[in-house]
């Protein structure tokens, strides 16, 4: 299968290693991976702020970029949810509706793609650490992914997976919410990061670089351990 990478804009600029890790895992499984450089942003910042005309323009650009791709895989539950759940809604009743539904059906979050589409849970990775998994809300509630990332982690050699006591709590990122209501956003980070840290784990595993930014940002400011790591980095064996 030829898989087209969907690299969210902040992965592009801030965490390129996550995108590379996704490619590494998929190639190791025998697939061809391509990156279409015309891709930009999924349009979520506009959509979430209520600026749907602007979001629609960005969405149409994404439809054009990914036209004809066999499968589109991205390392962010949030950005994938934008394409899968909100593009069809945003473009309903427009000439792009069919294309939006078509792209939605071909777009997958990284862990979801491995488990649900490829039926793979063991990619042969080893990671000798105690970890906990942080559910990103879009992955959990828009894409209904709860077991998939955990199945992948349980198959990793020498990895110990523990659960935190606030498994369904949001980290408080929420895009522009994090800077429009910074005190509320930070209080939420404190609750979630506190819960994750109480597991006494070495790493917090996430499938959403935006949640990572929030959790690490708070933990680092507090001078606390642990730090986050993307699921793809563990599976690729490229985790530092």
């Amino acid at each position: 299968m030829t898989i087209s990478l969907f690299i969210p804009c902040f992965v592009d600029q801030m965490t390129p290693q996550v995108g590379l890790a996704v490619a590494t895992v998929l190639e190791r499984l025998g697939h061809t991976v391509e990156f279409r450089p015309a891709q930009t942003c999924c349009g979520q910042p506009s959509f979430n702020a209520g600026y749907q005309d602007e979001a629609r323009a960005v969405a149409i650009h994404a439809l054009e970029v990914f036209a004809g791709a066999e499968a589109v895989v991205g390392p962010s539950g949030s950005c994938v949810a934008m394409m899968r759940v909100f593009y069809p809604e945003l473009l309903a009743g427009t000439p792009h509706e069919t294309a939006a539904l078509d792209l939605a059906a071909r777009t997958f979050e990284f862990g979801e793609f491995l488990v649900r589409k490829l039926g793979v849970t063991d990619v042969g990775a080893r990671f000798p650490h105690r970890v906990t998994y942080h559910d990103g809300c879009h992955g959990l509630r828009e894409l209904r992914l709860r077991e998939e990332p955990r199945q992948l982690l349980r198959a990793v050699r020498d990895l110990e997976l523990v659960e935190c006591d606030e498994p369904e709590s949001c980290c408080g990122f929420g895009g522009l919410f994090s800077v429009k209501f910074p005190m509320v956003s930070t209080a939420m980070a404190e609750v979630k990061a506190g819960s994750l840290a109480r597991t006494d784990c070495d790493y917090i595993v996430s499938s959403d670089p935006s949640c990572q930014l929030q959790l690490d940002g708070w933990l680092s400011r507090q001078g606390k351990r642990p730090r986050t790591i993307h699921l793809a980095e563990i599976l690729a064996g490229t985790a530092s």
Binding site: M14, P16, F35, P37, K180
Partner: peptide, 26 residues
């Protein structure tokens, strides 16, 4: 906008190259 973030949270330094640059090289 950045100060609202930085008041309570750190921001990591930007990496030397973007994904698209890294991909091209790879």
């Amino acid at each position: 906008v950045l100060s609202a973030w930085l008041a309570t949270r750190d921001l990591p330094p930007a990496p030397a190259q973007s994904f698209r640059a890294a991909w091209k090289r790879r």
